Simulated assay, not measured.
Amino acid sequence: MATITVFESITLDGVIQAPGRADEDTRGGFTHGGWALPFQDEVAMRFAGEGLSAGGALLFGHRTYDDLLGFWTTTPDPNPFTGVLVQSPKYVVSRGRDSSPELAYPNSTRLTGEAGDTVAALKRDVDGAITVLGSAELTRALFAAGLVDELVLLVHPLVLGSGTTLFEHARVELELRRCVPTTTGVVIAEYSVR
């Protein structure tokens, strides 16, 4: 059985929308894209790199898959993420609206249907670690279905006041396992889900 870890950059008011780029996700008129960039430092980059290099599979919603892989596969070398993202097994949850038969990147498998059902089957049928990157809607569905085992939050010292948040109406009890401060005020918190 697999272990599912959710990895998110988040503001103090819970926003996870578009941390990386101004044009990453403007849905709902969101104008704060790229909010995490000023807080990047060597500590956070090393932490993310260690997590990705540990191996395991990646799990995405279809929109995040297209955006994240599209960005990192067109970013000039060297960067610490492209090789891992391309080579890792990737699972992409899709409700079946996308009619394209092939996913754009190698080592990718589509999970068609509702996330609670398809990811529960995946978790039961594979071994090892599965990491969810971004994918707010998928993440909420996984929490609602009780499928998340671990949560890693990069908590940024910032309040945006608008945007997609990680939790809507879910109660989630967490146990802190590790906390790593960065030089820019970001706190990296690793939790196990109770």
Rank of each mutant, 00 (worst) to 15 (best):
A2N: 06
T3W: 09
I4G: 07
T5W: 10
F7N: 15
E8W: 04
S9R: 04
I10G: 12
T11Y: 01
L12Y: 07
G14Y: 11
V15R: 06
A18E: 05
R21G: 06
D23M: 04
R27C: 11
T31A: 11
G34F: 10
A36N: 08
P38R: 09
Q40I: 09
Q40F: 14
Q40W: 07
D41A: 09
D41M: 03
E42Q: 02
V43C: 12
A44V: 14
A44M: 15
G51N: 08
S53H: 13
S53C: 06
G55N: 00
G56M: 12
A57Y: 02
L58D: 13
F60K: 06
Y65E: 14
Y65I: 13
L69K: 06
G70Q: 12
G70M: 09
T74I: 09
T75I: 15
P76Q: 15
P80Y: 10
L85W: 14
V86K: 09
Q87R: 15
K90G: 01
Y91D: 02
V92I: 13
V92S: 08
R95A: 07
E102C: 02
E102S: 11
L103D: 00
A104E: 10
Y105K: 11
N107P: 08
S108Q: 08
T109G: 02
L111V: 05
T112I: 14
G113N: 13
D117I: 10
T118S: 07
T118A: 04
A121F: 01
K123L: 11
K123V: 11
K123Q: 14
D125M: 03
D125K: 00
D127Y: 01
D127M: 06
G128S: 05
A129E: 15
A129D: 14
A136Y: 03
E137C: 03
E137Y: 04
L138R: 06
L138S: 11
R140G: 06
A141P: 10
L142K: 12
F143E: 11
F143W: 12
A144T: 06
D149H: 08
L151P: 09
L153M: 12
L154S: 13
V155E: 06
H156M: 03
V159D: 04
L160H: 03
G161C: 08
G163Y: 01
G163N: 01
G163V: 03
T164C: 00
T165W: 05
L166G: 01
H169D: 15
L174Q: 03
L176P: 00
R177S: 00
R178A: 11
C179T: 15
V180S: 01
P181M: 03
P181S: 04
T182Q: 02
T183Y: 05
T184Y: 00
G185W: 07
V186Y: 04
V186F: 03
V187A: 14
V187D: 03
V187E: 02
I188L: 14
E190L: 02
E190Y: 00
V193A: 08
R194Y: 01
